[in-house]
Design a binder for these strands. Structure first.
Lengths: 354, 354
DNA sequence: TCAGAGTGCACCATTTGGGGG
DNA sequence: ACCCCCAAATGGTGCACTCTG
């Protein structure tokens, strides 16, 4: 029962074809669809029948062209495709679907600090604009991302996910400072004093903010921060490397910049005979769905990427449809306590298992 | 240095504006961009200058409208947004980017067996068609997905990722049968005889194929398959539930339908005092980036979703540009041996740790 | 004169075929 | 042969207008 167009040409039927069959003009068909103006019940019926008979579908492209409004949002993501981006897409596509928008994705595997990436990103943005998207959501946490917004008219709706307010772009972000603060406080409340921070890649606002949260929590408790390993990526291998390099005698707890890093760190320490939470406590950030099943189940800060996508979409839609800007929003994170954290124990107890 | 349009209206400059400034007609500007027809070096220079001065960008939308060719592929995904879908996006967007195509995404959170999902999916497909995409990639493994392809003209390029050849659609898939076969053979080669399979959600082709691979491997070794738990989802909780329900005395090895299920299963058995690979071996499917850091690092079948995206894109592009169909492709998976599998041990050795 | 119902035409930015100089 | 322009066409929308009672 596949529907075949009934037009002479065999091509997709147009409003004119529908009009011909229903014995009205194409414009009347247009009004039938858009709801503007008058169409008598009788005519309406004839049009409905003609539409069904021809299998006519409105041509969104022509409509967008004429109306100068595509109902499409461009989304530009950068860096390794990971859990955060996945969950963000999920929120974004759901919000778009609910309001009859479309999402077109541009993804670049490298982040802005890699050579050539800035130029590639710029081209991506131009490509999006040349598609006539109604707005762009720019998902990079790289600190110098504002350079990218150059070349985009300040009237054009842009939302970044950097958390950094910019003259030409609104921004939403998950509250990384709060995540770092609450995660570290949690460790402090458990009695830990020598707390190590394993950071994410440098020059990302998330990395800086999480570290700042850690530093603030340490300082409000009068504890000295520990020297930190250098950050390279958001992946497990960053945590793994850090876990191999570190001296286990120097800390009793770890705040990892995200869950993957926490996982890698745990894995490295396990290979050296140290287990959490027996020998040290560790908390991550993100709450990826799998971490509840890790060994041990990971205590972490839940970051609601889904909500991030929803809010980012709503912000840009607000800008597009109402013409107003909502400068900055920050979404809170919440501590999920599982089994990777435990009260600090006297020093004497801590030793590698054989 | 943000670029401002220099047209009287303040709107985005058009080819006509460029032409006016360069003292040529708009059509010549068109030929300058498309490369069809003659444009003298001198004129070319004037146009280049005018383009730069105005900050002109081609209007992809108008071009698509006129040429009846959007250079856009619609991608429809269903079910929980997980590692596989994201990795697929990654391959898809990279391939599209390389050939100057765009990708527009429609994602539905429920898969086709949930109520209302079929209708929602149908609407999604119609929405994509009304955007005038040049082709559609339909990513669902649900067995009855062919119903969806109805209502799409058989001339319209569609590629499904079901692995099931259909009259109106080409298909690519990762070789789930082979994954099941090789994973199970690996366990058999290690000396295991009582091998449990924990399947994915019912009615997915992937689930059926992986199970078929398992059954074939068992039968070729003359081993009886074990009764299987019922499948519900691709997530860790499916494995966790199975791991709580199962009798550990009944098997010495497990083939889990994917990595997340393997993780959940491992976690449940750990809570009951059983550890891999000491008490049982387990192998997953997917090779998500984190599994190398699991406890124990997971032996798994690597599925190249990135490649899947690339091939799907190339297939549909071939159909679009050459008019030829490439009916079916199947991509092999490869065994990644880590530490969750080990040689079978005499029965007497197996006991829960205290 | 008025309100309802519908038509005709210009227009959006670009591409294309048929010429003209 | 080279370089460029004109006019038409793409599908749909909004405005001004007509027609009928």
């Amino acid at each position: 029962m596949s529907i075949r167009p009934q037009t002479p040409s065999g091509a997709r039927p147009s409003m004119a074809d529908v009009g011909r069959l229903a014995d009205v003009s194409a414009q009347t068909v247009s009004r039938y669809f858009t709801g503007t103006g008058y169409v008598s019940a009788e005519t309406r019926e004839r049009i409905t029948a003609a539409v069904a008979q021809l299998g006519y579908r409105p041509n969104h492209l022509a409509r967008a062209f004429r109306a100068n409004r595509t109902k499409t949002i461009g989304v530009m993501t950068m860096g390794t495709m990971n859990y955060g981006i996945t969950a963000l897409y999920s929120g974004l596509t759901a919000a778009a679907h609910a309001t009859d928008y479309s999402i077109v994705i541009r993804h670049i595997d490298s982040d802005l600090d890699e050579p050539g990436a800035l130029e590639e990103a710029r081209q991506g943005l131009e490509g999006l604009q040349s598609l006539q998207v109604d707005g762009i959501i720019l998902a990079t946490q790289y600190r110098d991302a504002d350079e990218l917004a150059e070349g985009i008219s300040e009237r054009f709706p842009v939302v970044t996910l950097s958390g950094l307010p910019q003259p030409n772009a609104d921004t939403v972000a998950l509250d990384s400072h709060q995540a770092g603060l609450l995660a570290t406080r949690h460790l402090i409340e458990l009695g830990h004093e020598r707390i190590l921070h394993v950071p994410g890649p440098e020059n990302r606002n998330e990395t800086l903010e999480r570290e700042r949260g850690y530093l603030d929590a340490m300082s409000e408790a009068g504890l000295p921060p520990l020297p930190r390993p250098s950050g390279t990526s958001w992946s497990a291998d960053t945590g793994h490397r850090a876990g191999l390099a570190v001296d286990p005698a120097e800390f009793t707890a770890v705040f990892a910049a995200n869950d993957a890093i926490a996982l890698g760190f745990t894995s490295a320490l396990r290979s050296r005979g140290y287990e959490a939470p027996r020998d040290y406590s560790i908390v991550g950030v993100d709450d990826m769905p799998e971490v509840a099943y890790y060994a041990p189940p990971l205590t972490t800060m839940r970051m609601d990427f889904d909500e991030l996508g929803t809010v980012a979409f709503d912000m840009i839609r607000h800008h597009i449809e109402k013409g107003e800007r909502l400068d900055l929003r920050v979404l809170p994170s919440v501590l999920i306590e599982r089994e990777s954290t435990a009260p600090a124990r006297p020093e004497a107890d801590r030793a590698p298992s054989s």
